[in-house]
Amino acid sequence: GLTEEQKQEIREAFDLFDTDGSGTIDAKELKVAMRALGFEPKKEEIKKMISEIDKDGSGTIDFEEFLTMMTA
């Protein structure tokens, strides 16, 4: 499992990506986040990433899903 410290770091990354503070990361926010990390993702790639992570089919990534992605 994760230490509380690791969870906190992932939470901070999540909050950075969640620019509108909605508690979820949408495609637009993910794209901005990827760019910040030096990637140039295409729209299809973003969609694919979200569909792989987005277990509940909401079209957005919540913290639990993000946590799973970061620790996979």
Rank of each mutant, 00 (worst) to 15 (best):
G1T: 11
G1I: 12
G1L: 09
G1F: 12
G1Q: 10
L2D: 02
L2K: 04
L2F: 11
T3F: 03
T3I: 03
E4N: 10
E4T: 09
E4Y: 09
E4W: 12
E5T: 10
E5A: 13
E5C: 14
E5G: 07
E5H: 11
Q6W: 14
Q6S: 06
K7V: 12
K7Q: 05
K7I: 13
K7F: 12
K7H: 08
Q8C: 12
Q8T: 08
Q8N: 09
Q8D: 04
Q8K: 11
E9C: 15
E9M: 13
E9N: 13
I10N: 01
R11Q: 04
R11V: 01
E12M: 15
E12D: 10
E12W: 15
E12R: 15
E12I: 13
A13S: 04
A13T: 13
A13L: 15
F14A: 00
F14W: 05
F14N: 01
D15L: 13
D15R: 14
D15Y: 10
L16K: 11
L16G: 03
L16R: 12
F17V: 14
F17Y: 10
D18I: 05
D18L: 04
D18W: 04
D18Y: 03
T19Q: 08
T19S: 10
T19H: 12
D20W: 05
D20Q: 06
D20V: 04
D20C: 06
G21L: 05
G21R: 10
G21C: 11
G21M: 05
S22N: 10
S22L: 03
S22C: 05
G23M: 03
G23I: 01
G23F: 03
G23A: 03
G23D: 02
T24A: 07
I25K: 00
I25H: 00
D26L: 09
D26W: 09
D26V: 02
A27H: 06
A27S: 08
A27G: 04
K28L: 08
K28G: 08
K28W: 13
E29V: 11
E29L: 14
L30F: 08
L30Q: 00
L30W: 06
K31Q: 14
K31E: 15
K31H: 13
V32G: 14
V32D: 14
V32L: 15
V32Y: 15
A33R: 04
A33Q: 01
A33F: 15
M34V: 03
R35P: 00
R35N: 05
A36H: 12
A36R: 14
A36Y: 14
L37K: 02
L37F: 06
L37I: 05
G38C: 12
G38I: 02
G38H: 03
G38D: 02
G38P: 01
G38V: 01
F39V: 07
F39G: 01
E40S: 13
E40R: 13
E40G: 07
P41S: 09
P41A: 13
K42Q: 09
K42L: 13
K43M: 15
E44N: 07
E44K: 07
E44V: 06
E44L: 06
E44S: 11
E45K: 08
E45D: 12
E45F: 14
I46A: 03
I46V: 07
I46D: 03
K47W: 09
K47F: 10
K47C: 14
K47H: 10
K48R: 11
K48H: 09
K48M: 08
M49G: 03
I50C: 06
I50Q: 03
S51P: 02
S51M: 08
E52F: 14
E52S: 13
I53L: 12
I53V: 11
I53G: 06
I53R: 05
D54M: 12
K55N: 08
D56W: 09
D56E: 07
D56T: 10
D56I: 08
D56V: 07
D56N: 12
G57V: 05
G57D: 07
S58Y: 06
S58E: 05
G59L: 07
G59F: 08
G59R: 08
G59W: 07
G59D: 06
T60P: 03
T60H: 06
T60D: 08
I61K: 01
I61V: 05
I61C: 01
I61T: 00
D62H: 08
D62A: 07
D62Y: 06
F63T: 01
F63V: 02
F63Q: 01
F63K: 01
E64N: 11
E64S: 08
E64P: 04
E65I: 08
E65T: 15
E65W: 12
F66C: 01
F66D: 00
F66N: 00
F66A: 00
F66I: 03
F66Y: 02
L67G: 00
L67V: 07
L67Q: 02
L67E: 01
L67I: 07
L67A: 03
L67T: 02
T68P: 00
T68Q: 13
T68L: 14
T68C: 10
M69H: 04
M69L: 11
M69F: 15
M70V: 13
M70A: 03
T71D: 03
T71W: 13
T71L: 13
T71P: 02
A72Q: 10
A72I: 11
A72P: 07
A72S: 10
A72W: 15
